[in-house]
Write a protein that binds this DNA or RNA. Structure first.
Length: 490
RNA sequence: CGGGGUGUAGCGUAGCCCGGUAUCGCGCCACAUUUGGGAUGUGGAGGUCGUAGGUUCGAAUCCUGCCACCCCGACCA
């Protein structure tokens, strides 16, 4: 693609003001790496929430809410977990401010907390501490809970959408009586994510498992979906973790089984975040702005009237009213942009920037001919179609667009998916077109780290559908039994 | 936290080397003409030049500290 607004995450800056702004409150109090999500951007997040939440409910989950603050001591209970998050925690140490006598507001040192509170970077610890009180018997299991929340991770380096210091997400935390059931849940939720990414976001993803090195802090196994962006870099779009009994042991959560034995509970956790908005933008956008798949778009159809006189406007209004009603019956969200403060060309450009999939332009000429101009955001094409049966035409067109956006992304990924059998080839592809590189790896963290140092590529995942195949590691020549996926990642 | 860079109107910028009270474009406001792809003309509003100090008759410009942001690394959804 051309060097456009979406070729890299950094290039958002040309238009992200439409969706978010970087939080910059004032002077010395800039909120580092956070973002203000403006209404239109938030509407996209709300669509994601609504669709995912429905799926969570359909798969038996309920929403709950746990505290933002986590006592520091909770963190130290699971060794791998604390090690994974220790370096990126915001810590609350005091609970009061005071006037220092000169009019300056300072932290009141007398108001020091006995135990510091951590602003949650993820909620496993506080949730498992709570679950201890909820679980006594196998009859209390499973617990299938999800939380919609914000979390804070004080990253060294932030990147809009992809790695902000505060982000919105959902985190599912489930408790099970058996290992098998927990693994099943982990895989089920990965499927929910993958299906959401592909069918709703129209972003094809690879389902896989992380290597030991890339695993979530405290998990026995981390499943993920990996998407490919238009610049050839991979993005982890969602994760589902099998936590084993690690957190149950750390927080002493036991239950009495059917057989009367006291056992530790099995756990999973899974989450997706506002990073999905970054994935959406970088997977589909073009130089004209966002391209939203119809199933996700907060506004699916925008109608722009073109008129000179009040009479013409009244005539168009009547037509649009009827069309709007017909579309709404079909569950299509419609925006009638009849602002008289902007000209049609301006509106066209603005709604394209915002990614609205279908635009209907209707003017006096159309009213005479019984037609409208129907424009597609994905292909940037337009045609004149009959007003007769227009709602039906649009319903079909939205499906076509959804499919086309997915196909386009899939084609891109297919052409950026390369099997290699030597390290030279590996480096050549990596520095050339990029994308996913499928190759044999000896299974050691040492090799993985060495490759990362030399090439910046990491193992994105071991694909779930990887077939057994004898081969040799392209880095060390040691035997390997299946291919893994490497890529440069965000 | 290391290395590099930047901070001037809502946004993007010129000016800085070589000190004399800030340039241009977009946007904004008013009026007129316009309205089928980001209108045009005329007039107008808007700036403690990131911040604190220093040098100087005089600082956006020179010096020092601090803050923030961006890029590259380490870290990560």
């Amino acid at each position: 693609m051309s060097k456009g607004i979406t070729s890299r995450a950094e290039d958002y800056s040309q238009w992200y003001n439409e969706l978010v702004i970087k939080a910059d409150l004032a002077e010395n109090s800039a909120v580092r790496g956070c973002m203000v999500i403006k209404p239109y951007g938030y509407a996209i997040w709300e669509r994601m929430q609504a669709i995912l939440d429905k799926r969570f409910k359909e798969t038996g989950h309920s929403n709950a809410y746990f505290p933002l603050f986590i006592p520091k001591s909770f963190f130290s209970k699971e060794a791998a977990h604390v090690e994974g998050f220790a370096t990126e925690c915001a810590v609350v140490t005091h609970y009061r401010l005071k006037n220092d006598g000169t009019g300056k507001i300072v932290v009141d040192e007398d108001a020091k907390l006995e135990e510091e509170l951590i602003v949650r970077p993820t909620s496993e610890t506080i949730i498992w501490n709570t679950y201890r009180g909820w679980i006594e018997s196998y009859r209390d299991l499973p617990i299938l809970v999800n939380q919609w929340a914000n979390v804070v991770r004080w990253e060294m380096r932030t990147r809009l959408f992809l790695r902000t210091a505060e982000f919105l997400w959902q985190e599912g935390h489930t408790a099970h009586a058996t290992r098998e059931e927990a693994i099943e849940e982990t895989e089920r939720m990965l499927d929910v994510y993958a299906e959401f990414a592909e069918k709703i976001l129209a972003v094809p993803v690879v389902r896989g498992r992380k290597t030991e090195n890339e695993r979530f802090a405290g998990a026995l196994d981390t499943y993920c979906i990996e998407a490919l962006m238009q610049d050839g870099k991979a993005l982890q779009a969602g994760t589902s973790h099998f936590l084993g009994q690690n957190f149950a042991k750390a927080f002493d959560v036991k239950f009495t089984s059917k057989e009367g034995k006291l056992e530790h509970v099995w756990a999973t956790s899974w989450g997706v975040s506002t990073r999905l908005m970054g994935a959406l933008i970088m997977a589909h956008s073009d130089d004209q702005g966002l391209v939203l798949p119809p199933k996700l778009a907060p506004i699916q159809v925008v109608i722009v009237p073109i008129f000179k006189t009040e009479e013409e406007k009244a005539q168009i209004d009547a037509f649009v009213n009827q069309l709007t009603n017909e579309l709404r019956v079909n569950d299509i969200s419609v925006k009638y942009d009849d602002r008289d403060t902007q000209r049609p060309g301006f509106k066209f450009a603005e709604w394209e920037l915002k990614g609205v999939p279908v635009r209907v332009a209707v003017g006096a000429r159309d009213m005479q001919n019984g037609t409208v101009e129907l424009a597609r955001r994905d292909t940037q094409t337009k045609e004149t179609v009959a007003q007769e049966g227009l709602a039906g035409t649009i319903v079909q067109l939205l499906d076509t667009i959804q499919e086309n956006i997915y196909q386009k992304a899939l084609n891109f990924r297919t052409s950026h998916f390369t099997e290699v059998n030597s390290y030279d080839e590996f480096k050549e592809v990596l520095e050339g077109k990029g994308g996913f590189i499928s190759c044999h790896w000896d299974g050691t963290t040492e090799t993985e780290k060495r490759v990362k140092e030399e090439t910046k590529a990491t193992i994105r995942c071991i694909p779930l559908d990887a077939k057994e195949e004898e081969g040799i590691c392209i880095f060390t020549g040691k035997p390997s039994s299946r291919r893994v996926l490497f890529a440069k990642a965000y």
